[in-house]
Simulated assay, not measured.
Amino acid sequence: MTPAYKILTVSEWAVAEAAGLYEGSDVDRADGFIHLSTDAQLHETARKHYAGRDDLMILTLDADHPPLKALIRWEPSRGGALFPHIYGDLRTEWVMAARPASVDADGRLRIDP
């Protein structure tokens, strides 16, 4: 299993759950793919893009899950590190866990159990 994570808002997750799929945030759609992070990238992604937010969810995915793996491309981004990007929609049935999260003003990520 290769874990990958998506940070999104509680309201975005509620819409996705109702529809059975997540089509991405405004930024994702503008970029043409859904941004994910690895374990090593998650905290910096949270700090950089979500500081001061308490309305978040962290989705845990298995990037090796066959239907999902077919949609993921590993592409260089921040610092040349390879980030997983989903080219297509994320089906909610592929989400292994969805946990509430927050990022304090200093950028520290807190994920609820």
Results as ranks from 00 to 15, higher is better:
Lys6Leu: 03
Lys6Val: 02
Ile7Tyr: 05
Ile7Lys: 08
Leu8Glu: 05
Leu8Val: 03
Leu8Lys: 07
Thr9Ile: 09
Thr9Phe: 14
Thr9Glu: 09
Val10Phe: 08
Val10Gln: 15
Val10Tyr: 12
Val10His: 12
Ser11Ala: 11
Glu12Lys: 15
Glu12Pro: 10
Trp13Gly: 02
Trp13Asn: 04
Val15Asp: 02
Val15Arg: 00
Val15Asn: 03
Ala16Tyr: 07
Glu17Met: 11
Glu17Val: 08
Ala18Pro: 01
Ala19Arg: 04
Ala19Trp: 05
Gly20Phe: 06
Leu21Val: 14
Leu21Trp: 15
Leu21Tyr: 13
Tyr22Gly: 07
Glu23Val: 15
Glu23Ser: 15
Glu23Asp: 11
Glu23Pro: 14
Gly24Met: 08
Val27Arg: 09
Val27Cys: 08
Val27Leu: 10
Val27Trp: 12
Asp28Arg: 04
Asp28Cys: 13
Arg29Val: 12
Ala30Cys: 12
Asp31Ser: 14
Phe33Val: 11
Phe33Ile: 03
Ile34Asn: 14
Ile34His: 13
Leu36Ser: 13
Leu36Met: 13
Leu36Trp: 11
Thr38Gln: 14
Thr38Tyr: 15
Thr38Phe: 14
Thr38Leu: 13
Asp39Ser: 03
Asp39Gln: 05
Asp39Tyr: 05
Ala40Thr: 12
Ala40Val: 12
Ala40Glu: 15
Ala40Lys: 15
Gln41Tyr: 15
Gln41Phe: 10
Leu42Ile: 14
Glu44Asn: 13
Thr45Asp: 05
Ala46Lys: 00
Ala46Thr: 02
Ala46Glu: 02
Arg47His: 03
Arg47Leu: 06
Lys48Val: 14
Lys48Ile: 09
Lys48Gly: 11
His49Ala: 03
Ala51Asp: 01
Gly52Phe: 11
Arg53Leu: 10
Arg53Trp: 12
Arg53Lys: 10
Asp54His: 13
Asp54Pro: 05
Asp55Lys: 09
Asp55Phe: 12
Leu56Trp: 06
Met57Ala: 05
Met57Thr: 12
Met57Phe: 04
Met57Asn: 06
Ile58His: 00
Leu59Ser: 03
Leu59Glu: 02
Leu59Thr: 00
Leu61Ile: 04
Asp62Gln: 08
Ala63Asn: 04
Ala63Arg: 14
Ala63Cys: 07
Asp64Asn: 01
Asp64His: 02
Asp64Lys: 01
His65Val: 02
Pro66Ala: 06
Pro66Val: 05
Leu68Pro: 00
Leu68Tyr: 00
Lys69Met: 03
Ala70Gly: 07
Leu71His: 07
Ile72Asp: 02
Arg73Tyr: 01
Arg73Glu: 04
Trp74Pro: 00
Trp74Thr: 01
Glu75Leu: 03
Pro76Phe: 06
Pro76Lys: 10
Ser77Pro: 00
Ser77Leu: 06
Arg78Met: 02
Arg78Leu: 07
Arg78Ala: 06
Gly80Glu: 13
Gly80Asp: 05
Ala81His: 05
Ala81Asp: 02
Leu82Pro: 01
Leu82Tyr: 04
Phe83Tyr: 12
Pro84Asp: 08
Pro84Met: 07
Ile86Phe: 09
Ile86Cys: 11
Gly88Asp: 08
Asp89Thr: 12
Asp89Leu: 11
Leu90Glu: 13
Leu90Asn: 11
Arg91Gly: 02
Thr92Gly: 11
Glu93Asp: 15
Val95Glu: 15
Met96Asn: 14
Met96Trp: 09
Ala98Ser: 11
